Amino acid sequence: MKKIILAGGCFWGVQAYFRDLKGVYHTEVGYANGNKPNPTYQEVCNGVATHAEVTLVKYDETIVSLSTILEHFFRIINPYTLNRQGNDIGLQYRSGVYYESENDALVSREFIQKRQALSERKFAVVVEPLKNYYKAEEYHQDYLIKNPNGYCHVNLDLLKADERK
């Protein structure tokens, strides 16, 4: 099993999308790369904590590659917006790929560089080492299963039938 941490705006939609991707075995939402230990949702929202809302994605690389995961990630985010996805605006909604291995850093950087070369506009997606990660409160885990009519900036229909578990 491998894992990668993705920040793509509100973590509810990112988790819902990746939870159903073939080859992904576990997802959870949390807070990463911020300034204090064990932040709360309120601290992240009001700026006391500088973490990004993230989704931890554990996957089987014999079924799905990191490059494929990044292709899906770029399907569901706007790579040009700084600290914003959909209607959500703020530092916690920044876009990023947070890695633990140098190989994942290399794959992520190369993927983004190739995409960036095809665009005249500058991407706002960062690729950084994972500095810290804290699991979000339980009520945020699988939020859109618990609240089927909850807000989601991600178009979950972008995950095609043959890509689903």
Rank of each mutant, 00 (worst) to 15 (best):
V44S: 07
E102Q: 14
P39Q: 05
Q15I: 08
C152T: 11
P148E: 15
Y59T: 11
T27Y: 00
A105H: 12
N33W: 11
L130C: 03
P37S: 13
R115L: 13
N38P: 05
V126M: 09
G34R: 08
G150L: 03
F18G: 07
A117G: 09
A49G: 01
L159Q: 03
N103T: 15
M1I: 14
I89D: 04
L144C: 12
G9F: 02
I145T: 12
S119L: 03
Y59D: 04
K122P: 00
L158G: 11
E163S: 04
V54G: 06
L66R: 05
Y25K: 11
Y143P: 01
G8P: 01
Y98M: 07
Q141E: 09
N83V: 04
S101L: 00
Y139I: 11
Q85H: 02
I89L: 13
R19T: 12
C45Q: 02
K131S: 15
G90C: 11
V126E: 15
Q113D: 09
V57H: 05
A124T: 02
F73C: 02
Y151P: 12
E102D: 15
N155G: 10
N103V: 14
C45Y: 00
N78C: 12
Y139T: 06
C152D: 07
L156N: 10
G13C: 05
E43K: 01
A124M: 06
E137H: 09
K165E: 13
R115I: 06
L70A: 03
D104M: 03
A32I: 06
I89M: 06
I5M: 07
S67Y: 10
L158N: 13
R84Q: 14
G23T: 10
D142I: 01
T40C: 01
L118I: 10
H72K: 10
Y25Q: 10
L82G: 04
N147S: 06
R75Y: 12
T62L: 14
A16I: 08
A16S: 12
E102P: 00
N155E: 07
E163D: 11
Q85V: 05
A7E: 08
E61A: 15
A7F: 12
E71S: 11
D142R: 07
Y143W: 06
E163F: 11
E120F: 11
C10Q: 02
N103R: 13
E61Y: 13
Y151W: 08
C45W: 09
Q92A: 08
L56R: 13
W12K: 02
I4V: 12
Y80G: 07
R121G: 01
H72L: 04
Y133R: 05
A161Y: 02
A117V: 08
E43P: 00
E53D: 03
V125R: 01
W12N: 00
G13H: 01
I69R: 09
E138H: 12
E163T: 10
E100F: 05
E28Q: 08
N83M: 04
N38D: 14
G86Q: 02
L118A: 14
T62A: 14
D157K: 11
V57I: 15
D142Y: 13
G23Q: 10
E138P: 04
L159G: 00
T50S: 14
I89W: 11
E71K: 09
E110K: 05
L159T: 01
G13M: 00
K135V: 01
Y59M: 03
E110A: 13
G23H: 08
Y80N: 04
Y133W: 09
